[in-house]
Design a protein around this nucleic acid. Structure first.
Lengths: 160, 160
DNA sequence: GCACTCCCGACCAAGGCAGTCAGGAAAGTC
DNA sequence: GACTTTCCTGACTGCCTTGGTCGGGAGTGC
């Protein structure tokens, strides 16, 4: 349930590409702009290239650019490119798990968890980030009570 | 963004405890009921005990039971007990990250991601699972288009 | 005192995470 | 065609997590 450094870096680099108006951007510039170790970033950009999110050209005047318009690339696309499936349980997709007995309804919960993740990650595009105009769902979620608190525990309820 | 075996096991064991009517349940019975390696499960139950979710007694007639009523224990509680914070980015809580430049709005996205996870995990209780009556949000999410599909990609859109 | 059950630290193999290093291969420039 | 630039790629590393297993110790009930 954690976002890896790689995924974070990947999104940040992609946003930087989305913000670049024209022409290829060097890996070095991306690394500097977002304070990412260059050599690590190159591996990440390679993965993004392999999954068709960015393109690249070598040599002088070379660099990276988005393969698609920034408003057609979602955060989910970028995260999946470097991390694989968004929400797996025990390394298998939630709908494929077979529970028995009392745990049976649990599968629906994991599916709901994945769907809720997607409802955010598949809606926010790189263009949204560049414009700083996030979709309404983000505002809805971030304005929920406790959304900015580190840990919302139900323990206090019964203990207090 | 994956649910570990430990977290999965923990929830399943907790559900089994919630389903037990009276008296302590042996670790062995929990392990059998949910097909979990006993020795591994014991470690998990110990963690659940340390975070105040279950209680235990040793010896004959010993076993584990829930410290609180099943309708006051959420899945989030159980997952946090064994996995720590629900949604961290680079091992730090999303609201604590400082982005610069174009990536700045990204923080709100991660906060929204966490909030969306919480909106499911903090609402479903062990009692809900035992009764097989999940809160409305779960139905809403699982009935969303593509919720049961392995990967909902926006790539096909532009490629097709 | 004896069986039962939880408690808990030590250990282990495999793999992931977050990089670094070294070199090769295309693309442009002169 | 040499030379620089920049991406491309595999190999390697150190550390940590995951998913367990093993063995013994300690409290509980009869």
């Amino acid at each position: 349930m954690r976002v890896s450094a790689k995924a974070d870096y990947a999104v940040r680099a992609a946003v930087e590409l989305a913000a670049a108006d024209e022409g290829p951007v060097k890996g070095e510039r991306l690394a500097e702009a977002q304070k990412i170790p260059l050599q690590f970033l190159e591996h990440i950009l390679l993965e993004l290239k392999h999954s068709g999110i960015v393109r690249a050209r070598r040599g002088a005047k070379g660099g990276y650019w988005l393969a698609r318009p920034a408003d057609e690339v979602t955060i989910a696309d970028v995260v999946r490119a470097v991390e694989g499936p968004i929400a797996d349980v025990q390394s298998t997709p939630p709908e494929a798990i077979e529970y028995s007995g009392n745990a049976e309804p649990l599968r629906d919960v994991w599916v709901a968890v994945r769907a809720s993740l997607r409802s955010v990650l598949e809606v926010v595009t790189l263009a949204d980030l560049v414009k700083n105009e996030l979709p309404p769902i983000v505002d809805e979620m971030t304005s929920q009570p406790g959304a900015w608190q580190a840990s919302t525990s139900t323990k206090e309820m019964s203990q207090g």
